[in-house]
Design a protein around this nucleic acid. Structure first.
Lengths: 129, 129
DNA sequence: AATTACGTTGACGCAAACGTAAGCTTGAAT
DNA sequence: ATTCAAGCTTACGTTTGCGTCAACGTAATT
């Protein structure tokens, strides 16, 4: 792949967000697109960061939390101290995610029940007609 | 159970939130505690609603979304029209939840990778000493 | 009587995550 | 030459979800 780039509206369209949102992410230091003249030019890495930020948003993370997670992939941590601290951070994040999965499963189970009641109720009505 | 009731600080403590938060939920119409004189008195149903609201929050739902989900359990929907509409709503919510689970699994997989790299790096260092 | 603990009602404050509008530039198309 | 879409900056506005006083009431304790 020959260093594919994207305009701001390319990415806005792809992800279903506004250009304002993308510029806002830059304002907050979440991405750092290059410039071609005055225009922003996004590369594959920028695109992935946005994708991961949006994934974080979908599960209720703040922008900063998403960035924190993304930055875990950054291998610029070298000393033992930092590595241990990173492992702790990962453990905490993992615990949160597992709780979230449980919450989701609980809610899904609830929806199943409600749906059954709905269908039972509709079934009765059909039988009546 | 003889209609157990709770004070505002009972619930605040149990759920690790502030009394301000609970009053805020009431302000927004999410709960409707009785009054004993001037003081709020919460029953089991109020307590469950708060619990479900907090569960919603953990997976990134807004307060209103949580309430919408909670209200699905309310069996005061009778006509066929409403039941079909409710089934649609459930389907959409279920789809969202399933996407969230996928997002969480993806993120967990990412954390696994990062952790392995961490431990590999720490392992090397131990071998050096 | 005074302190302490817990409760109440305003009311203002605040961070997060954008929306929205104004006004200017720039390159491409008619 | 002009129009038009797409981009830019600046800046104020909005919603959500509480935090944080202030000022007061009530009930039990010392």
């Amino acid at each position: 792949m020959v260093d594919k780039t994207y305009t701001i509206s390319d990415l806005a369209q792809e992800f279903g967000i506004t250009t304002r949102t993308i510029r806002f992410y830059e304002e907050k230091g979440l991405i750092h697109p290059l410039r071609e003249g005055q225009k922003r030019l996004y590369n594959a890495a920028d695109r992935v960061r946005i994708k991961l930020i949006l994934r974080g948003k979908r599960i209720g993370m703040t922008l900063q939390e998403s960035v924190d997670v993304i930055d875990m992939y950054d291998p610029s941590r070298n000393n033992t101290q930092q590595l241990h601290s990173l492992i702790d951070t990962i453990a905490r994040r993992r615990a949160k995610l597992i709780q979230q999965k449980k919450d989701i499963d609980d809610m899904l189970a609830g929806l199943d029940e409600v749906q059954e009641l709905c269908e039972k109720s509709l079934g009765k009505r059909r039988r009546k007609t």
